[in-house]
Design a protein around this nucleic acid. Structure first.
Lengths: 339, 339
DNA sequence: GCGGTTACTGTAAGCGGTTACATTCAAAGC
DNA sequence: GCTTTGAATGTAACCGCTTACAGTAACCGC
């Protein structure tokens, strides 16, 4: 029953090595010259005492946390694995720590954002929980942020990294129409104000229009980019005595595609014979779904990596306001009717 | 060009409200009575000034970070989504923050663990980067930890949450043998010292032995529980002029199963006719792989949730040393030959 | 030999909170 | 009325670092 883990402090090190705490600090941070002899002694003492600087004390004194935050709407999507991977790799390389937190528009009633200037040096924002006005305020106060899959408010110079949604979706839907003769195409939206979802809806509508197909509100469902919700929504849609005829589904993203495929399967609908299905993201499992999923390949790990790198750019005073849109590419597989 | 975001401090609040900083602190933390009148005034001032306490200052003074850490070997697996989900939900509910970091045995050469007593109040350890001796030392110093998918060193009272591996694997392999007549069963290990992998290997061997099948080292490959590595290993195994005959693959986990299925597919091997395939975890995509994957359902989100809850139990001084093994269940689908 | 550098080191004042201890004051007990 | 008590508040000492400032000694060029 240890009383307390009274950890070893910089003063212990200083005393043991016979120098001042300032010298120890300088040696550790390598931000001022320290003589050969003292360096040797410190190296020895540090490892003997197993000294680890107390993070909070460091943060308080230096006004830097060496932590960056990743703010997500939720964690209900396999999509986040490559994203996290990209972010984490950069953060680790830089010797920083990564806090991840979920926060969405509804959270605002209950709490303030769990991460921000009070506990991080900068934020990657993949969340609708921070409104444009919040972004503007934070940015005005000089807090470094990079938006992920989200465009900054007009003429606010916050850098952003996202993927091309509109054009690729339009092409994908046109493929369904022109190659496979589908005209009753269901679209599963993502979260209501999520930008990817809006952009994909734009692409969807523009493809319909360009091909003389009237937009039918009954064909638009809310799948939330989530496997389980997509399943429920689709299950209900199908159970509804099939009042609404349809011949294909754009699931919004690959995660939702899993739910859609399960629902179709349970209702005895054949894919792609009866209903064609297409997704978005090309997550690792997409080629091995049943049938293999036609989808859009999005460079999600790169998005994470680049966003993190740009955030560190800001921390190192390389200002930027670029909106970066990484290219995407359609991957044709069986689920749309190809092959 | 703001000079600095000179944020509002507790002293500003105190001055504005005409009270001492101590009173403000007490009001915020609600750890001592504050009179009605002062409370009202403070409430108003706090929201006017948009005061947010500086985390590091708080940590330093209170010796609590209100942060817990999750240490992972890597982030290369969809398995981590449900795990993170469970952990994050609890952490958020408790008003804490979550740092995630990757650290594995090889990282030890380059760096100390990025998270520990210096920057967190407790750790969830799902990593082989901390050796038993590290765990013993940390535990002896009173640092709260919960092990995830890992058993504590003998007679060291660190709580642990994992899933049942050995018996369920034995049954799964016996199913391949007894129901589908397979006898040349490839096993893809996970990371070498990962406990799940070892336990599953035990189950695998025990099933072979119980059924009079000699263990053949040539059938054991290192898939690392990773999609891409599993693919490469399997691809090479198949390309090797098929010197080693086999009729089934236990992929170690579902993520590796994706790689294995892709490799088999590319080599024109039919599943399950030529080769049966089974996985572990029952990730969301498993029912929709091609063919649907026979696997073991593991309650991964519960593991995350329970582990986090137990860590908070430790923080609240409810000691525990229980090793918790959550039950698992085989899910039969097409890939083993069923249906 | 002297002023001006340069290299190294120490002293001590914060950073922005928490909290032990002291103080004040009104209500209660006798 | 006087002491006791407890609620409410203030004062100030930390928490463990960083860093501005100051100081010393050695070295440089002239």
């Amino acid at each position: 029953m240890t009383k307390r883990s009274s950890s070893v402090t910089i003063r212990d090190v200083a005393r043991q090595a016979g120098v001042s705490v300032a010298t120890v600090s300088r040696y550790i941070n390598r931000n001022a010259p320290v003589s050969e002899g003292v360096s040797c002694r410190l190296e020895k003492v540090l490892s003997e005492l197993k000294y680890v600087p107390h993070a909070a004390a460091r943060h308080l004194a230096s006004r830097k946390t060496r932590v960056i935050g990743l703010l997500l709407n939720n964690l209900h999507n396999d999509f986040f694995v490559p994203l996290l991977n990209g972010v984490e790799a950069v953060v680790r390389r830089k010797g920083y720590n990564l806090i991840i937190a979920t926060y969405h528009a509804d959270s605002r009633k209950e709490m303030l954002p769990p991460i921000g200037p009070h506990n991080t040096d900068g934020l990657l924002v993949f969340s609708d929980g921070l409104f444009d006005e919040d972004l503007i305020n934070l940015n005005a106060s000089g807090f470094p942020m990079v938006l992920v899959h989200r465009t900054p408010p007009p003429s606010v110079p916050i850098p952003s990294v996202t993927v091309e949604n509109v054009e690729v979706t339009r092409k994908l839907i046109e493929h369904l129409i022109q190659v496979h003769g589908r005209r009753r195409i269901v679209f599963l939206r993502g979260p209501l104000h999520q930008e990817d979802s809006c952009k994909r809806e734009m692409g969807y509508k523009s493809a319909l229009q360009a091909n003389g197909i009237p937009f039918d509100e009954n064909l638009v469902l809310n799948g939330d980019f989530e496997r389980d919700i997509a399943f429920q929504v689709m299950d209900q849609f199908l159970g509804n005595d099939r009042q609404v005829a349809f011949d294909s589904v754009f699931t919004g993203d690959d995660d939702a595609a899993i739910g859609v495929l399960r629902a179709l399967h349970q209702h005895g609908v054949r894919v792609p014979e009866d209903v064609a299905v297409i997704g978005f993201d090309d997550l690792g499992f997409a080629p091995f779904l049943n049938p293999p999923l036609t989808t859009v390949r999005a460079p999600t790990e790169s998005v994470g990596r680049i966003a993190a790198e740009r955030l560190f750019g800001l921390l190192e005073n390389q200002p930027s306001d670029e909106v970066m849109i990484l290219p995407t590419e359609i991957i044709f597989r069986r689920s749309c009717g190809c092959q």
